[in-house]
Design a protein around this nucleic acid. Structure first.
Lengths: 186, 186
DNA sequence: GTCTATAAATGGATAGAC
DNA sequence: GTCTATCCATTTATAGAC
């Protein structure tokens, strides 16, 4: 069962740097020093690996969200704690958010992986929505409209900035997120 | 020279729906009804096709930007005219902005294509920056900080919303862009 | 669980005839 | 400019020995 985690860990790194379609069992095989067939033993089809990966993301997201929500700080501080993940990703060899990487390949994803991706998006949206709504209720934030629409905007800006930053460097990310704070985070 | 345009046109459609890496000369061959070798005649390497594609995008962007900037309307109306492209893309079989599609694959793009991508991003950013700055100068918009940072934020939100909308439907795009207007567009 | 060997399909690319 | 034929590397996946 530890091999399984090793494979998942490496697959995670690869998805973040090149996406789902662009890594192969040969990549995993070479970097782990085991035969391709051994990887097929743990994940018979690549699709199985994709789904397992999404499930691990789902768990990680839930943990992270709970940690932040139950922790101290204003709504915007909580958002910023989440945005910090993105900054770390770009700095680590221009990696992408794995969920954003999957989104970009939606039309070539196996159906079961696409289904998991929707779940992933949804829990991320719900998290932002709750934090933003809480912030508004406590008077820390002011915005009009549904908190779900605001969550959509903030999350879209975050992921979009990450995508740009992979091409233009992390200064882009900081700049865009700084501006986001000016607009919605005070 | 007309064949060349046909190939570019089809490659454009494919990039928008599956990205750069996920379409092949075989796809082009099948849909155009000509042999793979014929496509290699026009674009010897896939990289050549990628670069040519980017150059066509560059031209299209410049035309579109000039049309909008020289046209009537407030700054936000100009931005919205641009955002309309995104709405049309999602509605057309969940297509993506081709530039966003390339961004997502930066780490596996041939270097010459990556260079063109940077150019593409830059002219898009400059366009937004000019329009936003003009709007602020005329008192149509109020925002703090550099217009380039504001452009980064607005463009990131736009592209990010597009990516989500491909998974969750165009309602997501409308919702996020509606909220963007509430925050920055009045 | 891991290996070697191999299959079958697909990817980008070239040679050379027409 | 277009074709057929072909090359070679890669990709996902399986069979079967250890």
């Amino acid at each position: 069962m530890d091999r399984k985690s090793e494979i998942l860990g490496l697959a995670d790194e690869l998805v973040k740097s090149v996406g789902y379609e662009s890594f192969s069992y040969a990549d995993l095989s070479a970097k782990l020093g085991i035969a391709k067939a051994s990887i097929h033993h743990h994940f018979p089809h690549k699709e199985d690996l994709g789904v397992a990966l999404c499930e691990s993301y789902l768990q990680a997201f839930r943990d992270k969200a709970a940690l932040i929500e139950d922790g101290p700080g204003t709504a915007w501080e909580k958002i910023e704690r989440y945005l910090g993940v993105g900054a770390a990703l770009v700095e680590d060899n221009r990696k992408n958010c794995p969920v954003a990487a999957l989104q970009a390949q939606v039309n070539v994803l196996p159906e079961p992986v696409r289904a998991k991706l929707k779940e992933l998006d949804q829990i991320e949206l719900d998290f932002f929505s709750r934090v933003l709504e809480g912030g508004r209720a406590r008077g820390e934030l002011t915005f009009k409209g549904d908190s779900s629409a605001q969550a959509a905007l903030v999350l879209a800006a975050y992921k979009g900035a990450l995508a740009f930053a992979r091409v233009h460097g992390c200064a882009f990310f900081r700049s865009a997120m700084g501006q986001l704070k000016r607009m919605v985070g005070v």
